[in-house]
Write a protein that binds this DNA or RNA. Sequence first.
DNA 1: TTTTATTGATTGATCAGTCAATAAAAAATA
DNA 2: TATTTTTTATTGACTGATCAATCAATAAAA
Lengths: 199, 199
Amino acid sequence: MPKVGMEPVRRKALVDAALRAIGDHGSLTVTMSEIARHAGVSPALAHHYFGSKEQLLIETIRSLLRKLRDDAVAALAFAATPRERLSAIIRVSFQADQFAPETVAAWLAFYSEAQRSEEVRRLLVVYARRLNSNLVQSLKRLCPAEDAARIAEGAAAMIDGLYIRQSLRSAPISIEASIALTEDYLNAHLRAREDRQDG
Amino acid sequence: MPKVGMEPVRRKALVDAALRAIGDHGSLTVTMSEIARHAGVSPALAHHYFGSKEQLLIETIRSLLRKLRDDAVAALAFAATPRERLSAIIRVSFQADQFAPETVAAWLAFYSEAQRSEEVRRLLVVYARRLNSNLVQSLKRLCPAEDAARIAEGAAAMIDGLYIRQSLRSAPISIEASIALTEDYLNAHLRAREDRQDG
DNA sequence: TTTTATTGATTGATCAGTCAATAAAAAATA
DNA sequence: TATTTTTTATTGACTGATCAATCAATAAAA
């Protein structure tokens, strides 16, 4: 059976399997066997390619973050004005695959893991910073820097909050409603600023 | 050594120890031995009083929720107007002990656990509903019902989001700043409403 | 004598990680 | 071209550690 050049194929299959297993399970307490089963290989092979469970999980987070970044880059390419860029950032955060219960569960598990693993924490900080910086950059075109920083923090918190609330699956807020709430937040604050200037 | 009437004492000690252990550890993957050690008793005794680890953890969440509810009741007793009640709710959500890293870590762990344990999920839904209902009740005095529902959802999301972001401990937002951001959100939306009415 | 509190010792299950063995492909050598 | 050697892919079997849960034993109080 051994065919040469399997490494990248197996790595990808295992990372995808890990994501699915974590989503199913709702936590990082998945076994290597479970992940390997999802990928259709033996547990030993997973260890062979990743060395340890921790490393496989870290690669899995990386792949989630990469996907999110790629989506953001793609969405921002179509946005002309600062305001459109803000909407694009929001849309990407709530896009369907990100909002799928398994994905939400996986993110949540990673946040929890970040309390223990410095490397996981670092990766999530990267995500948080990127979201913040994207927001601030566009907001600075629409209002003074100190307002931009504040509004960005609020918007980022709202995005994360809507996301975490999704995980409880009771009275779930739809994608559209989540986007609308975040847009409302931006509109209210940008408008409030103008009012103060005008009045 | 055996002194009669120890049951309530031990139960409380074990629940407190569990909370501390979870906070230290940053996740629910704490051992009964660890918890028992924190409480100064043998692991066997923890099983004796709680039957299983799961039950002990559930009691621990219950105690967190009870504390939060009691604080909310106390804070609301001093609030006269609807607007003051809203501020009281926000203040309680961000009060110092709730914002302590160990407490944040514990909440996060519970959210993650809710993906697996129906009972944990139910308890967290109770929290979410209570926060929502508290907010809506006061907001309905200040704006129409449909606006109240929407603003409450946004405020609740923002509270949870600020909370979860605290867990990353990078560029942490202070208690005061968190309160200010949430207050700003309410002010902006309540003002925006008035503007629309006036204009 | 019964009840309550408490623990040390043990069990059984689960898992991450290791390793030696197998087999196919590729490269080197004759 | 035919062969041997090396590299790559893969797994079954095993190990050692960890841990939840059990239980029988002990001792103080009622």
